[in-house]
């Protein structure tokens, strides 16, 4: 009996360009927030906290839309090849990012140090989600 290994591609190997753009935009936005937080931390210049707030808001928009794409992908794919880890990472990014937005809404230094810690975590999670999401799939080995 001969087993023939056939690579079947029931879905494109890479993310849709729009999905990819949304996902790729997430890291620079949350990273920008983290850098702004570091600037506020070291300078006490409150304008940096404002920058961080808007960057986080942008990060939430991008990661939120990417999350919707990922959710759609979960249902579209057959056999669960789209690893749910990508989806779960994005969920974590968005929830912690949202909490971070609320923390940053506190006035002046009340956002610190929690805001900085959350920015670090969210940025790392966003990098992980992007790495998993954009890595080339091996395809389905039947």
């Amino acid at each position: 009996m001969t087993v023939t290994a056939t690579a079947v591609h029931p879905y494109p190997k890479t993310l849709h360009p729009i999905h990819a753009t949304l996902l790729a935009g997430t890291v620079p936005l949350f990273l920008g927030a983290l850098l702004s937080d570091l600037a506020y931390w070291s300078s006490y210049q409150v304008e940096w906290a404002n920058f961080a707030s808007w960057l986080i808001a942008g990060g939430l928009v991008f990661s939120g839309l990417a999350l919707l794409c990922a959710l759609a992908g979960l249902f579209r794919s057959r056999g669960g090849e789209r690893r749910p880890i990508y989806f779960l990472l994005l969920v974590a990014v968005w929830i912690l990012g949202f909490i971070n937005a609320l923390v940053h809404a506190r006035d002046a230094w009340a956002a610190m140090p929690t805001g900085l810690v959350l920015s670090i975590i969210v940025t790392l999670l966003a990098i992980a989600a992007t790495g998993v999401g954009l890595s080339r799939r091996v395809g389905v080995v039947a």
Binding site: V46, E47, A49, D107, A108, A110
Partner: peptide, 9 residues
């Protein structure tokens, strides 16, 4: 000019 200096000193 703020609640608690959030518009800067």
């Amino acid at each position: 000019n703020s609640n608690i200096t959030e518009r800067g000193m």
